[in-house]
Design a protein around this nucleic acid. Structure first.
Lengths: 191, 191
DNA sequence: GTATTTTCTTGTCTTATGACAAGAATAAGA
DNA sequence: TCTTATTCTTGTCATAAGACAAGAAAATAC
């Protein structure tokens, strides 16, 4: 029951009655994956969305030259929603990998659809989440355009210290759109 | 009635009955704006989403140094949805400006919410649109990371020739994340 | 249709970042 | 614990893109 706290914090405040909330919560299943394992494999259809209970993950794609490009990081309480694949039920191009051992809640498509159509509050919550993830991505894209690499790195230190602590230099570098060599030099420069 | 064709193509195929469709369509109002005018002003709360019937628009933000950075372009049939502001009803940071005289359909929040809760099909459509816009932005961000400026420009020529035709060099340049000087040289290089 | 403003091109020089490679440090495996 | 693999640092050199400035071309206004 303790683990439900994470969900409770997010979903317990959207305005559902206790019964509705309990019913909604039933649709979540707990899973664990080991460090290095893939939660989502590129080429497959994503079957659920996920809440991170504990652990740390990253998403990446393989670019045309065969290099891994890290597209995002997911720590405690993060929502992992690969909407394009999940909603349209088409294969995803991204892989999502556990950087540490992880515990997650899964919500599968069928129960998601059922609850989505059942509860207005859940719909509003989902819409907000999507809109705010969209907004974050916009900010990131803008930062790629207007900031130089060292500023992007400094922002990451300030806003996402967990990433700096848990992700490897190589993964952070490709997330920032630079080489690991450059990031190493930026680190030296800053310290 | 002719102008409804645009909407029809998008919304007429989502599985509503004729009556439901007619009712949905009623929620749209037609507006026009003149070249140079702002459809959405930064600092205000977005009151609707828009379908472009005719014309051409661009969205931009002002960065910390006071420069305009073009964030998107919208041609015929495009959906203009500033979700973060529209759904959360908070002020937006973006401006959206008519590059040419434009005609648009507006759907205001109240009718949107009514119809969203009324029709499952409309909900599914909205979710798909949001997910696919999200996906496009992801691709754009990835392109900023993995492609050099000339490749990004070539992709734009191939995938969005309308932008090349209608937008100014300066706006295209900031959209691609480069200076107008650089884009001018890339154009010379290519031709 | 001329004047004025805006947009685009081109030149020179600077700078941030990449490519490649070799060694150091750290982590993982046996 | 020792060995091997991985990650990180550092050096040298190459290159894409920016900064600044001046002129050409095009669009807009009067």
């Amino acid at each position: 029951m303790d683990d439900r706290k994470v969900l409770f914090e997010e979903l317990g405040t959207i305005g559902l009655t206790t019964d509705e909330f309990e019913n909604l919560i039933k649709g979540y299943q707990k899973i664990t994956i080991k460090k290095g394992d893939l939660l989502i494999k590129s080429g497959t259809v994503v079957k659920g969305y996920y809440f991170v209970i504990s652990g740390f993950l990253r998403s990446f794609i393989i670019d045309f030259e065969g290099n891994e490009v890290t597209t995002n990081f997911y720590g405690k309480d993060a929502l992992i929603l690969e909407g394009h694949s999940f909603f349209m039920q088409i294969p995803t191009k991204e892989d999502i990998q556990a950087v540490e051992d992880c515990e997650l809640w899964v919500k599968k498509l069928e129960t998601f659809n059922k609850d989505f159509n059942l509860y207005k509050e859940y719909r509003d919550w989902g819409r907000s989440r999507l809109a705010s993830d969209f907004f974050s991505l916009k900010e990131r894209t803008l930062s790629m355009i207007t900031d130089k690499a060292s500023s992007r790195y400094k922002k990451l230190i300030k806003n996402n210290p967990e990433i700096i602590k848990k992700a490897s230099l190589k993964h952070i570098a490709s997330f920032l759109g630079i080489t690991d060599t450059s990031l190493s030099r930026i680190r030296k420069e800053i310290s």
